[in-house]
């Protein structure tokens, strides 16, 4: 019994770890993810688009003043 309980616990832990580790893929398929890739010379954080399952435009993106994302640095929140 103890062994069975331990196996159950262990399974739960493994499954929990699995979901934690893979939490991002639980998002809807086309969810946009913007990954920070470092500051530019003006101190503006640059992002790139990283859709979960699809390919993405290879353009540098900034956080915009209104909280969204924009490829236009002039309307980014660091200007």
């Amino acid at each position: 019994m103890r062994l069975n309980r331990s196996i159950k616990h262990l399974s739960l832990i493994i499954i929990s770890l699995f979901f934690v580790a893979c939490s991002d893929v639980t998002k809807p398929i086309d969810t946009e993810v913007y990954l920070p890739i470092g500051m530019d010379k003006d101190g503006c954080m640059r992002y790139r688009l990283k859709p979960t399952t699809q390919m993405s435009a290879q353009v540098i993106i900034y956080k915009s003043i209104n909280g969204g994302y924009t490829p236009n640095k002039n309307t980014s929140n660091c200007r």
């Binding site: 580790a21 991002d24 893929v25 990954l35 890739i37 470092g38 979960t52 399952t53």
Partner: peptide, 21 residues
């Protein structure tokens, strides 16, 4: 990594840490 996590179908990973570089 995605193969282990995604239950098939996925081809790209959101788990990749951003390259700082």
């Amino acid at each position: 990594l995605l193969s282990g996590c995604g239950g098939g179908g996925g081809g790209s990973s959101a788990n990749v840490a951003p390259d700082t570089q």
